[in-house]
Computed example of a mutant assay.
Amino acid sequence: MSTKNRRTRVLAAALLALALTGCGSAASGDGMSGMHHGSDGHTHSHATASGSAHAGADHTSAGDGLGAEQGGYRLDLAVAQLPAGAPAELRFGVTGPDGARLTAFRPEQTKPMHFYAIRSDLTGFQHLHPTMAADGTWTAPLAALPPGSWRVYASFVPDAGAGAGTDLVLSRPLTVPGTAADTPLPPAAATAAVDGYTLTVSGALTAGTAAELKVTVSRDGRPVTDLQPYLGTFAHLTAFHAGDQAFAHLHPQAAEGAAGGPELTFHAELPKPGDWRLHLQFQTGGTLHTAALTLHAA
């Protein structure tokens, strides 16, 4: 890259950073002003949680979703803090390698953008599919968040720029002020229950190694065979690492036919050892169910 082009990109990034932080603690700008704020919801974090208005001071870590930037793409939040007590519309955007707001995205599991929120104790999981305005500003309608330290993740495939066609996960910290209490991470287990369904997991996990993870769904001791397609598959599975909230998306086999089950197969490759909190979503009778369990990766 020429010195002139490098200076141009640095200047563009600096101007965007000023736009996002120029309004003080609200950090609004660049098409993201006028956002409605609010939150409340689960349980969490440290004794009292407070955060800076600028969400930019975050480390970059390729491959585990903990970086705000990767491959020249950057995630920008309109605010770094949401108040507790009500639902909130969080606005954000992705800046491309050219310093401009990215507006071209390829669908991944039927959606151009998957957006997640998780608290530092791995409670309060939300998986959303935000909407994008013509200028590339996304709006994610978050349910009420409880006080604590949160992290939000944008999972997408750019359709423009040097990384076009590459799966990316970028994230930023988000603070919800107020008194908060951690919920202990449940111990590792091979089963989980939700809405009358029982999920049984089999398969050994080793960090950095691809493995097959199988999940069997049953109800009242009988196998479930009426799973409905959800996002182009019969289940959606995400995992978060205890301690640092590293992210992993475990890819399922594509849905074939109108009904599936009782067995679901996932390609699993977790980036680091330790305990992971898995959130498995599946659909029956038009209702989406979300089950959570802890697994350990050697």
Rank of each mutant, 00 (worst) to 15 (best):
A12I: 06
A12L: 13
A13H: 04
A14H: 15
A14F: 11
A14K: 10
A14V: 12
A14W: 14
L15Y: 12
L15T: 13
L16S: 06
L16W: 11
A17C: 09
A17V: 06
L18H: 14
L18W: 13
A19D: 12
A19R: 14
A19P: 05
L20H: 12
L20I: 03
L20M: 11
L20Q: 06
L20P: 00
T21S: 14
T21I: 02
G22L: 07
C23D: 14
C23A: 14
C23G: 06
G24T: 08
S25H: 11
S25F: 14
A26S: 15
A27M: 01
G29F: 03
G31D: 01
G31V: 06
S33F: 09
G34T: 00
M35C: 04
H36W: 14
H36T: 14
G38H: 09
S39A: 13
S39Y: 11
S39I: 05
D40N: 09
D40Y: 08
G41D: 03
G41K: 01
T43P: 01
T43Y: 10
T43I: 12
H44A: 03
S45M: 12
S45I: 02
S45F: 11
H46L: 14
A47P: 03
T48L: 14
T48G: 00
T48M: 03
T48A: 04
A49R: 05
S50N: 04
S50Q: 09
S50L: 04
G51Y: 09
S52C: 03
A53M: 06
A53Y: 04
A53I: 05
A53D: 04
H54G: 07
H54V: 12
A57V: 07
D58W: 12
D58P: 04
D58L: 13
D58H: 13
H59R: 10
H59N: 08
H59G: 14
T60R: 11
T60P: 02
T60H: 02
T60W: 00
S61I: 10
G63M: 08
G63Q: 10
G63C: 10
G63R: 07
G65E: 01
L66H: 00
L66I: 09
L66S: 00
G67Q: 04
A68W: 06
A68Y: 03
Q70R: 09
Q70Y: 09
G72F: 04
G72Q: 03
Y73L: 13
Y73F: 12
R74S: 05
L75R: 00
D76F: 15
A78K: 08
A78Y: 12
V79P: 02
A80S: 08
A80F: 01
L82A: 00
P83M: 11
P83V: 08
P83C: 03
G85Q: 08
G85N: 10
A86F: 13
P87V: 05
R91V: 02
R91Q: 09
R91P: 00
F92H: 02
G93W: 05
V94S: 01
V94L: 11
P97L: 01
P97W: 02
D98C: 09
D98W: 04
A100W: 07
A100D: 02
R101A: 05
